[in-house]
């Protein structure tokens, strides 16, 4: 954060000690009220935090409660700041750092359109089978694959499709949940 400004030598950016950046997945339970997503995104842009992925959907309709999953990168100090800044927002019920809570599962869904004929088409189908991607639309010159998995698996599949005629990709972003019997406080 702000590292690119360090060169100006301003006193605001004297902290030049390079700290390791970590990637964390946060789950945030919020009231599903107008503007709540803008509030969360505004916090990230206003304070210069990174968003690698963000998904949101109402998870408890009767309580109007939504769950936001955010993948973010930063130094451990910044990650802690993000959690505290999120937690003090009025419509936020609770925040969980799925990465430090230990055992948790993250998944995302991608739809991948590939166009091609002949050997490339066969190869794409073969790879899709290996990745357990389903064919959800097929024509004589194109496929749409549906793939669910961790982000790196999705990445890998997409990169393999590039030489085989990748046309476009739609990804949902990451959703995450902790293992074990306990749920998040709502």
């Amino acid at each position: 954060m702000n590292a690119h400004l360090a060169a100006t030598g301003s006193a605001y950016f004297l902290d030049t000690t390079k700290k390791e950046v970590e990637t964390h997945t946060l789950a945030v339970i919020v009231d599903n009220e107008p503007g709540v997503l803008a509030r969360v995104i505004g916090l990230f842009s206003g304070r210069g935090y990174n968003i690698d992925s963000l998904t949101v959907s109402e998870t408890e309709h009767n309580k109007h409660v939504s769950r936001i999953t955010i993948v973010t990168t930063g130094t451990p100090q910044v990650i802690t700041q993000i959690i505290h800044q999120l937690d003090r927002m009025v419509p936020v019920h609770s925040v969980a750092d799925l990465t430090v809570q230990g055992s948790s599962i993250t998944r995302e869904l991608a739809m991948v359109k590939v166009a091609g004929t002949g050997e490339k088409r066969v190869e794409a189908l073969r790879l899709a089978d290996a990745f357990r991607a389903r064919v959800i639309d097929a024509g004589t010159t194109s496929f749409i694959f549906e793939l669910t998995g961790k982000s790196d698996k999705v990445e890998q599949f997409i990169s393999l499709m590039v030489p085989l005629g990748l046309v476009e990709v739609a990804r949902t972003g990451v959703a995450g949940i902790s293992r074990g019997p306990e749920g998040m406080k709502v």
Binding site: T80, Q81, D87
Partner: peptide
């Protein structure tokens, strides 16, 4: 920042207790 001056030279020899009602002020 008007209090601390340069952070890396701020009160170098002290242990710090921080009382605050806002958890996001801690370690900011």
């Amino acid at each position: 920042d008007r209090i601390t001056g340069r952070i890396d030279a701020f009160s170098p020899g002290s242990k710090k207790i921080h009382v605050d009602i806002d958890p996001s002020s801690i370690n900011k």
